[in-house]
Design a protein around this nucleic acid. Structure first.
Length: 103
DNA sequence: CGTATGACTAGCT
DNA sequence: CAGCTAGCCATAC
């Protein structure tokens, strides 16, 4: 398979998200060059099979809510991973005012 | 090349 | 506040 420039950017950006921080789909899309490609970002995350190279669990919805996750127990595992990394939660959502990645 | 789909988002009801 | 609709983007078929 031959990754396109867009998906390549997404994987690169995702791998740059520091531990303890999260980024939104729209944010990654914007950094990749298309501020409205949030859906395409999510699609790439689902396609991704290497969670060690691409920490897709650090990517959340625009309001901090956890959406999908392709590994283990889905969003349950996703939340557990984020908590383990020090991400601050406000209920079932990430507290973006504290844990949002700021490139 | 046209259609369908999805881990999104913003706006309305 | 919760639920729905329409719009955008990249891929798969």
């Amino acid at each position: 398979m031959q990754p396109t420039e867009f998906s390549d950017q997404i994987y690169l950006l995702a791998s740059r998200i520091p531990k303890g921080k999260v980024a939104t789909y729209g944010q990654l899309a914007a950094l990749a060059g298309s501020s409205r490609a949030a859906r395409a970002v999510g699609r790439c995350m689902r396609e991704n099979r290497n969670r060690e190279a691409v920490p897709c669990h650090r990517v959340v919805a625009a309001d901090g809510a956890l959406t999908g996750y392709a590994f283990d127990n889905g969003v349950v595992t996703k939340k557990a991973l984020l908590l383990a990394e020090g991400v601050v939660f406000a209920g079932d959502k990430v507290d973006l005012s504290v844990s949002l990645w700021n490139p």
